[in-house]
Design a protein around this nucleic acid. Structure first.
Length: 883
RNA sequence: AGGCGGGUAGCUCAGUGGGAGAGCGUCGGCCUUACAAGCCGAGGGUCGCAGGUUCAAAUCCUGUUCCGCCUACCA
């Protein structure tokens, strides 16, 4: 027989391991591909396969797990679809770093071998983050784990690429792209981080051809002048009107380039003359196109000056800048240098300064996809919570530009395009072609680039469910129910999933998107390794227990606000876990061996009726909060109820019956406390899966896992409105006496005598029936309840509603203290009365405010008046008595 | 430059038209047989500032200031 009494304190470590193994062994996370039950599906935002769990993951997955566990308990067929992402650039970087530490590099090992090494790496470390998610308690259906480089998902990628190509939505072209000279690859616009920094604006003289003088040009990047093919001015700019048809001589290279006119140029900025470098700047590129300018690339893919850079060939781009400035200065062509702040793009992976470069890349023509994705959200097919993110989503969708999807790295989905070595034909095909479709030549070479990782992530909600096969999973779970993610990947990932989902599945990929906050440190700073302010979730779990950690995250996850996390907060919620544990321990200790929650018991006591009514209401509130993604509300409702209603009031009062000899009363207290505890652990289970399972398994009347125990609902409990009012009265008396005791510093060991004077004689009986509770909770020896009795001599009085309770102080304390206390309270009541009186003397209020509001204020005034007169009476009593 | 969010108790925040709240911290009192990771009690706020709408504003509007974030092709 298993020991049913709980240990004195909760020890998370063993308990967590035990139950996670139990859940997995019993397949409790398994979803059914076909089921009568209502489907609920979340696809996990796939973590990088090389990653380790950080706070962002912890929050993100805790919230998902809360939703999944909640829905499962409500009887849904839940699929939490897990998996990892191959994270092309990040993973390649990690493996390359490892290679270089061993004195090698990817070019030395070759492409095929390198990819093999990365797979090996994944086999070795890919399970790390998965195990960390398990440690967090995540109830993913691990039997369905996917990886973006799996065969099935790779097929999906090829399928999507070829179909988009055939539809003209994927094309290949020469454009200015963001190039990272360190990672040696193109990046999408989104992958470039702009940060404002101190820089300089250099004013350079471009001598005019065939006449005296020069055109003064302002630039932040003097090294690109080697690739200049024009200088542009605004046609409306009077200063340059007579330069039409003229040329300038490009300094250093002494090349003649034209002065062109274009409205793009801002007359106000700098000198109003803009040097044009079509091969190294997006705007210049576009201006170059309209004016049919030559594109001269002077910086190569490694960030070094090439052979077209004349004397600077072979220099690094920054070195070249310094040299060129020195040379210009010497030639008297550098007029001035001004400090200037501008935002320069950096690689989001390695922080290297991005080089805008002319390059041939693959792009997705995004507008047609974006428009439908925009519309779907506008029509409410997908709802974004909190809704202010919708505006940001639309904003981005409206200004979106074509998506550069080719990457010059090796780890990823290779672009399914082949080039004919003989006729130059481009063949895009799911399967490797044997001959050129145009000239039948077998001389075909596959494109060496791979696709942006986000290209495969964009398919995640349907590729993981088996697409392009028409699987049962797709039929059952697509569109998925909710997506939970941080705003930092709203564009990278969420928007692109919506586009691809609509295009290939004909429907949005998810009904709801819940955008959660960022986890910051206690000062509100972003956590980062370089700042050294990271809190490691695994350490936290070890120190405080996973349940306390999860509850903290949920309790702090208010919509639209970042989370400031500190160890003190987590510690605070660990106390809550302990409180729950001890409540359970107490209930268990007092249960009779043959007890069952369905046992018949005699008449319920007032506290019994009250707590059952309350737990019903609270269940309803929690359900509503979960349904609205108000995790913090759900958490604090539970916290408040468990600690301050169940423990502080109910269990304290139940002791009366539990310790007593009346078997009927004892039985009803036992059944009620068990019933409420069973509800409490179930409503807390989504937050705190481990401790609740541990308690559940020790409680009588349970079978199997708490996961199958159902979620408590309002209708499970009797609603007894009278019990709420009666308890208010009872608690009012007890609180009144406690207030006096506290303020007068009467020690708990000293019992007092009290007289209760009720305004409503009919309520006397209510208190009479509950005298024992007042005596034990307020530490009272003798008490009398009646209506309309005079205040006893030498007593202190507490008021509640229209009632008063007098505590006899004779021989207990200093009356001066009581006079002070009364005066203080009189002042407080007078202030409140002043506010309300003012309202009632305002004609506008009486005429225009709703009747019930006016009535409320009238009632309040009445209450305050009677309080005030009682307080004054009490005070005058004390004024006449000598201590 | 544009956009978004925020400023409420010492700290972290909830509260979106009608009585300023919670948790933590602080202070005072308690080893009351579930829990000192606990129990009982107390103190503490001109709701950033200035106008406006309203009978009534923390709440709605306008302006302003400070902080944070996002987006951006003025060199």
């Amino acid at each position: 027989m298993e020991q049913k009494i709980l240990d004195k304190s909760y020890e998370p470590e063993d308990v967590e391991r035990k139950w996670y193994e139990y859940w997995e062994k019993n397949n409790l996370f398994r979803a059914e591909a076909v089921s009568e039950k209502r489907p609920f599906c979340i696809v996990i935002p796939p973590p990088n396969v090389t990653g380790t769990l950080h706070m962002g993951h912890a929050l993100n997955n805790t919230l998902q797990d809360i939703l999944c566990r909640y829905r499962r308990m409500k009887g849904d067929n839940v699929l939490w679809q897990p998996g990892t992402d191959h994270a092309g650039i990040a993973t390649q970087n990690v493996v390359e770093k490892d290679l270089s530490a061993r004195g090698s590099d990817r070019h030395a090992v070759g492409r095929d071998k390198f990819i093999e090494i990365v797979w090996e790496w994944r086999r070795k470390y890919g399970g790390l983050i998965i195990n960390q998610l398990k440690r967090l308690g995540c109830s993913c259906d691990w039997s369905r784990e996917r990886f973006t480089m799996d065969e099935g998902l790779s097929d999906a990628v090829k399928d999507v690429f070829t179909r988009l190509y055939e539809e003209g939505l994927i094309y290949r072209g020469d454009y200015i792209i963001n190039w990272c000279p360190r990672c040696q690859t193109a990046l999408a616009d989104l992958e470039v981080e702009h940060e404002e920094a101190d820089s300089y604006l250099y004013y350079i003289r471009y001598p005019l051809e065939g006449r005296d003088g020069y055109l003064l040009v302002a630039t932040t990047r003097p090294e690109t002048m080697l690739g200049d093919t024009a200088v542009a001015v605004n046609p409306d700019d009077k200063r340059y009107r007579d330069y039409s048809g003229g040329n300038v001589v490009l300094p250093i290279l002494n090349k003649t380039i034209p002065i062109i006119f274009d409205r793009y140029v801002d007359v106000e900025f700098g000198t109003g003359a803009l040097k044009i470098t079509p091969a190294h700047d997006l705007n210049d590129f576009e201006i170059g196109n309209t004016h049919e300018l030559e594109r001269i690339k002077v910086i190569n893919e490694k960030g070094f000056m090439n052979e077209l850079a004349g004397p600077y060939e072979g220099m690094d781009r920054f070195e070249c800048r310094e040299k060129i400035l020195a040379d210009l200065d010497r030639a008297g062509l550098l007029e001035k240098v001004e400090p200037y702040r501008n935002a320069i793009g950096h690689c989001y992976r390695c922080k290297t300064m991005i080089e805008p470069l002319l390059s041939k890349q693959w792009f997705v023509k995004i507008r047609p996809l974006a428009e439908k994705a925009s519309q779907a959200v506008r029509e409410g097919k997908t709802r974004i919570y909190p809704s202010n993110w919708e505006g940001i989503y639309f904003e981005w969708m409206n200004n979106i530009r074509d998506w550069c999807i080719s990457r010059q790295i090796w780890w990823g989905h290779r672009i399914p395009a082949w080039y004919c070595g003989d006729c130059g034909e481009v063949i895009v095909s799911k399967n490797e072609p044997e001959n050129c479709s145009s000239c039948s030549s077998p001389n075909l070479v596959q494109d060496s680039d791979v696709l942006d990782t986000w290209f495969s992530s964009a398919l995640w909600p349907f590729s993981t469910l088996g697409w392009p096969e028409n699987t049962d999973e797709l039929k059952t779970f697509y569109p998925t129910s909710a997506l939970v993610t941080g705003f930092d990947i709203l564009f990278f990932w969420v928007a692109r999933m919506i586009m691809m989902g609509i295009h290939f599945m004909g429907d949005v990929p998810f009904r709801d998107v819940y955008i959660h906050a960022l986890v910051r440190d206690a000062e509100g700073k972003k956590m980062s390794k370089s700042k050294g302010n990271v809190i490691d979730p695994l350490e936290v779990m070890g120190q405080f227990g996973t349940d306390a950690f999860r509850f903290t995250l949920a309790a702090l996850a208010a919509q639209g606000r970042d989370i400031k996390l500190s160890e003190e907060r987590i510690q605070g919620y660990r106390h809550f876990v302990n409180k729950l544990w001890n409540a359970a321990r107490f209930v268990l200790m007092n249960l009779s061996s043959e007890i069952d929650v369905n046992n018949k018991c005699g008449e319920l006591s007032l506290p019994d009726r009250w707590i059952l009514t309350r737990v019903g209401r609270v269940s309803g509130e929690v359900v509503k909060a979960f349904d609205d993604y108000r995790f913090n509300d759900a958490a604090s409702i539970c916290y408040q109820f468990v600690w301050h209603e169940f423990c502080d009031w109910y269990l304290e009062m139940a002791k009366e019956a539990l310790y007593g000899t009346d078997q009927e009363k004892k039985a009803s207290a036992e059944v009620t406390s068990l019933r409420v505890l069973l509800a409490v652990v179930r409503m807390l289970h989504p937050f705190m899966p481990f401790v609740t399972e541990e308690i559940w398994q020790k409680l009588p009347s349970t079978q199997g896992s708490i996961m199958n125990g159902g979620f408590p609902e309002a209708s499970d409990f009797p609603a007894d409105g009278d019990s709420l009012k009666e308890m208010d009265l009872l608690m009012g008396v007890i609180t009144g006496i406690r207030n006096i005791r506290g303020e007068m510093n009467i020690k708990p060991s000293v019992k007092v005598n009290a007289v209760v004077d009720l305004a409503d004689a009919e309520q006397v009986e209510i208190l009479e029936r509950n005298l024992e509770h007042i005596k034990s909770l307020a530490r009272v020896n003798d008490i009398s309840i009646s209506s309309g009795v005079p205040k006893p001599e030498a007593s202190a009085t507490a008021l509640f509603e229209h009632n008063q309770v007098h505590v006899i102080l004779k021989g207990l304390l200093d009356f001066e203290e009581e006079r002070k206390r009364l005066k203080k309270e009189i002042k407080k009541v007078e202030n409140e009365l002043g506010v309300s009186d003012k309202k009632l003397s305002n004609r506008g209020f009486l005429e225009k405010a709703p009747d019930e509001v006016v009535q409320e204020v009238r009632d309040k005034v009445e209450t305050l008046r009677s309080r005030l007169s009682k307080l004054n009476q009490n005070l005058s009593f004390f004024e006449t008595i000598d201590a």
